[in-house]
Amino acid sequence: MKINVNYYAMFREQAGCSGEVVEGDCGDAVALFERLKETHGFSMGRSHVRLAVNDALVGWDAPLNDGDQIVFIPPVAGG
């Protein structure tokens, strides 16, 4: 399975890139986030973060499929 992960704002800076492709068994979205948090040292816990899959906001229990584009969304500050 291939998942395309895109980073914005603080996640982009902490990961040092604007996205990456994660291959292999990623588990569910929660496991994937926790793994990437560990890898990149994200300072923000999942309780503040929302998940988008293929440009739509979804719950953390949404299933991941091969080729999905996912984004972890930290608290926003438009305006």
Partner: peptide, 24 residues
């Protein structure tokens, strides 16, 4: 609601993502 993030640059030379640092 809209996924837009704001990074402030300060006179002190520091910078920070608004809402995110405090949340973290």
């Amino acid at each position: 609601r809209v996924p837009i993030w704001k990074k402030e640059h300060y006179l002190s030379g520091d910078s920070g993502w608004v809402n995110c640092e405090a949340c973290a």
